[in-house]
């Protein structure tokens, strides 16, 4: 068990990163720290994918010196997935940041606890 973790230390580390990000996104009360947590969480997943896709001793899948044997190259799909994931993560972060700006303009704080406290006194029936 421990031996397996040591051999696959990259994956183990990626999952730990994911856990750190996840708990930050869930439990931090400050909105910016939540967003940083979101990015750490996504990065953990990307690290997992990238480390899975890489095989020691093989080349990037671009034919330059005429070798067409698939065993000579690594699988390009995980890298493609990481790229897609990064695009998604960037757009999500952007929309969250814009929401944060809007919330700050209204309540002048980034602490969610204080914002909840303030919004409780507002009466907006409809």
């Amino acid at each position: 068990m421990i031996g397996n973790l040591l051999v696959n230390y990259e994956e183990a580390f990626a999952i730990i990163l994911f856990g750190i990000g996840f708990t930050m996104l869930l439990f931090q009360r400050n909105l910016f720290k939540k967003l940083i947590g979101l990015n750490i969480m996504d990065t953990g997943t990307f690290l997992f994918l990238a480390s899975m896709g890489f095989i020691r001793g093989r080349e990037a899948p671009i034919v330059t010196n005429g070798v067409t044997d698939a065993g000579f190259y690594i699988n390009p799909v995980p890298a493609g997935l990481v790229l897609t994931g990064i695009v998604v993560s960037v757009s999500v972060t952007a929309i969250m940041l814009s929401l944060t700006v809007r919330l700050y303009r209204r309540y002048h704080t980034l602490q969610l606890d204080e914002i909840y406290e303030m919004s409780r006194h507002q009466m907006e029936d409809r």
Partner: peptide, 25 residues
């Protein structure tokens, strides 16, 4: 653009992002 909808949207997004993160993993 009410205060409450923005707050609800933040909360909604945070829960959804947790969900998407887990789904991706």
């Amino acid at each position: 653009e009410l205060g409450r909808t923005t707050l609800a949207a933040i909360r909604y997004m945070i829960m959804n992002l947790l969900g998407s993160g887990l789904f991706l993993l």
